[in-house]
């Protein structure tokens, strides 16, 4: 049985869960974005090099 009623501690508990999940989502998003950008930049440079040779 799930209990979402945090009573008088609602502010503390929900702020904790909200801030943590937001931070984690931000970290994951930035990591994946940087990875995709670097992959694309390398691919573009490799393609440009191949077309020159």
């Amino acid at each position: 049985m799930l209990d979402f009623d945090m009573g008088k501690y609602g502010f503390y508990v929900w702020t904790c869960y909200g801030a943590t999940l937001l931070s984690l989502a931000g970290l994951i998003g930035l990591t994946l974005r940087a990875h995709a950008q670097r992959k694309a930049a390398l691919k573009a440079l490799q393609d440009a090099t191949e077309s020159q040779t």
């Binding site: 945090m6 009573g7 501690y9 609602g10 503390y12 508990v13 904790c16 869960y17 943590t20």
Partner: peptide, 11 residues
Amino acid sequence: QGDTVRIMYLH
């Protein structure tokens, strides 16, 4: 500690 114990699962 009441419901604040749920903070432990993250902290």
